[in-house]
Design a binder for these strands. Structure first.
Lengths: 229, 229
DNA sequence: GTCTATAGGGGGATAGAC
DNA sequence: GTCTATCCCCCTATAGAC
């Protein structure tokens, strides 16, 4: 099975390069060079650059989301916000103890690549991402609403969105904070990073329902102009 | 001054294309085509693709950060978290009332472009971004710490980082939430978006200091391995 | 299955006429 | 200041020998 091994080699090489340079910034030539295989091998094994990117993602996203579902299943009927957030966050980071039994720990490369892909959202990935996260999103919203009566669905969705943003940014722009703080914050310390992220997001989720939620439902204020659209 | 007008035309065209396709995904040919100017004009006026991208950014980032500083100056000595967050968030979104006097309201294109650039962080931009945000970051951390005694600097920096992530993701992946929620959440409604973001971030910032902050300062636990590096 | 060679299309940058 | 024409690069994808 030399062929199967070639596939894995290519996937590993692509993962690192996509992480570093993004989708558009990565050439198949650089991938095959790093993998030490021939240029034509990518098209033979995957059928093109887009399919290669998708396969790099599914290799990790599948197990990660499976683990998330497993943790959501294991939640008590009235979970804490922190527990819910952990179910989403911990399977993604290369965490130390606590989830060692899970499927092959995603490497740092995948984390950065995933962050970039979330940001770039190449058109051919949108369908894939939507498919992977629609069900998970609904479960998340249901869990959040089960902990606190005052949160309407729209607010819960917004907060899921913000959580995803904080997470994606942490996965990909970690170097930035290390540089800005001159080492005070170390994104390579996965444990502390996760604790910080969980504390922040859990507090944000548990905040009071957004005042001006919905449309023309501001408490008391003279009619301002209803902007746009 | 026909020359100055050409420059602006190019900047506008580039802004839209960078927003839509990112830096790597945008060709100078597409820029000059949209701007209806000659291909050579970009190199004549800006000196290359990188310089063009930087100028597109500075055009908006400068005024936005100036406005942020102005709002931070106007903060009371013990401000609320929400007020601090507003000082950072509102100048970025195309907001309706409340900051109409500010410099030319940044359009949606710039918002998306900025989100992408924050995510991609092309190497030539890192120095620029660091320069633009170092001072602002320190002021932000100082403000946050002034509201609450228990927050150490590292935690404050982490939370600033998460805020930036939530904001960047909101700026660029707005379509995603509209699609996922089938219209329940509308990223084109800038007012509601800002209110949701401010409420979430303010609550996250005001959360209890992160338990496992710092390094080997976990309450009680056997020495675990000190990961990597 | 694996490789070489090449097709066929853009890409950024520049020289030099106007 | 503006344009045309061009240099020379790198890209993805594929055909066809081994």
């Amino acid at each position: 099975m030399t062929g199967a091994d070639t596939k894995t080699t290519i996937l590993d090489a692509a993962e690192g390069l996509f992480a570093e340079h993004g989708y558009d910034g990565t050439s198949l030539r650089s991938v095959t060079a790093r993998a030490k295989v021939n240029l034509a091998a990518v098209n033979y094994h995957f059928g093109g650059k887009e399919r290669l990117a998708i396969e790099v993602l599914v290799r990790h996203v599948g197990p990660i989301n499976a683990e998330r579902h497993r943790r959501l299943d294991a939640l008590p009927t009235r979970p804490t916000m922190a527990a819910i957030v952990r179910a989403f966050v911990e399977p993604v980071f290369p965490v130390r103890a606590g989830c060692p039994a899970g499927p092959a720990a995603p490497g740092r490369d995948f984390c950065r690549m995933f962050g970039r892909m979330m940001a770039e959202q190449p058109p051919f990935l949108r369908a894939f991402l939507a498919g992977q996260f629609r069900e998970l999103g609904h479960r998340f919203v249901a869990c959040v609403r089960s902990t606190r009566t005052g949160i309407d669905p729209a607010t819960a969705w917004w907060r899921l969105h913000f959580m995803a943003g904080a997470m994606a940014h942490t996965l990909l722009a970690g170097d930035g904070i290390a540089h800005l703080t001159e080492g005070l914050c170390d994104p390579d310390d996965a444990e502390t990073t996760v604790e910080q992220l969980v504390a922040f997001v859990a507090a944000g989720l548990a905040g009071p329902p957004t005042p001006s939620r919905g449309r023309a439902a501001r408490p008391a204020r003279t009619q301002k102009r209803r902007s746009r659209r």
